[in-house]
Write a protein that binds this DNA or RNA. Structure first.
Lengths: 207, 207
DNA sequence: ATATAAACCAAATGATCGGTAGATAGTGAG
DNA sequence: CTCACTATCTACCGATCATTTGGTTTATAT
């Protein structure tokens, strides 16, 4: 019944582009990249099939565009916390409080930005396949995330790369359980509780 | 060039069925359920499209058949360890050693039975979508897994259901990282190291 | 007004999808 | 040897896929 748009709506291209990416994030996060068709997406944006492809040359390109966008967002949002850590470092103060805040905000954002989180979780798994169009992006993403986490954990734990993998795994794993059944537990609580086991109480001593 | 089978190979139905399920486990584990077509699968088994559908009425039914099979395998394989735990309980001995073994074998099996592990990881994520044909199965699977883990952890940790979720999350998360890049770390090592933080050293005292 | 650029659409492309129908061929029982 | 059974095939179905072609509409700048 969703009347075949008689009137053409000509929208500001940057706005339209954002709407497309937002819809793609939601749909792909729900059904996976292989589970979403261009016509699905087009209909959600209020555009024809060909209208969509005016913005992104192909389905794959659209996915890469979305990943690029998310990458930018991710960097912009985490920058202030990185800065806080570097500042503590510069001031000779323990970086632990800043690291704790960073880790908590990470989880906070997971539930605040539900669509993006679901998208990342779903596509990270789907892209294990080397032939998946997002494979390389997530490969890099994970390496960088683990590297960064390892760095900020280095002053506090004996094997920072290992601890980084634990935290990355925990965040993804708990996040996924929470996506499936959000009402069965409190994500932030369980995360913070786990951190008390993994991170040290005091500020300085490694191990 | 894989010559269009001139000669008909008539195979024992139960064997053929197993081959189909084995191929499905591998293919779906690589590309996800939505990423695999019946013709892909048929070709891998050396069967025509229609030949495949002689064994499973539809693509969805095939998936459910595979899940059923995996469920049976899973139960059969974990039964001895469950028994060991119950036996320790009956003998008044601490169940901790048996629990540790159970948890280690869990991870051991993850890398031993690569195809099944990849399948479970990939489909668990894909089936977050309530409309996915495997959604209900994994919902149940997770509830049961968490419940069982919570039970065997109860004597050792203050909040067994929470710890169960941690372990489930860690196993999935580490497993996924390892599936993507198996050469970058040793799965069993990192798992056991994490367990030393999460499980108690001694046998009895909770907390 | 008129022209230019580009945002957008209808319709068609060939490929491929999951699934069906009706033959055909291998197999074990008698 | 013959028959019934069924595992398997070829051929086809309508639907849907991503993408292309070529035109139509709208905003803007002159």
């Amino acid at each position: 019944m969703a009347a075949t748009g008689q009137k053409r709506v000509r929208e500001d291209p940057t706005v339209r582009r954002q709407k497309i990416l937002a819809a793609a994030e939601i749909l792909i996060g729900e059904r996976g990249f292989n589970g979403v068709t261009l016509q699905d997406l087009a209909r959600h944006v209020g555009l024809s099939n060909a209208g969509l492809l005016h913005y992104f040359a192909s389905k794959d390109k659209l996915l890469l565009g979305l990943l690029e966008d998310i990458g930018r967002r991710e960097i912009a949002l985490s920058e202030p916390f990185n800065a806080a850590i570097r500042e503590a470092e510069r001031n000779g103060v323990s970086t632990l409080p800043a690291v704790r805040i960073f880790l908590d905000v990470l989880v906070q954002r997971f539930s605040d930005q539900l669509a993006q989180s679901r998208f990342l979780v779903v596509l990270q798994t789907e892209s294990i396949d080397p032939a998946h169009p997002a494979h390389d992006w997530f490969q890099q993403y994970e390496v960088q995330a683990l590297h960064f986490m390892g760095q900020i954990l280095a002053p506090f734990v004996p094997r920072p790369e290992m601890t980084a993998r634990w935290l990355h795994a925990l965040l993804n794993g708990l996040g996924q359980q929470w996506l499936r059944a959000p009402d069965t537990f409190n994500l932030l609580d369980e995360w913070q509780e786990a951190l008390t086991l993994i991170l040290p109480k005091d500020g300085t001593g490694a191990r």
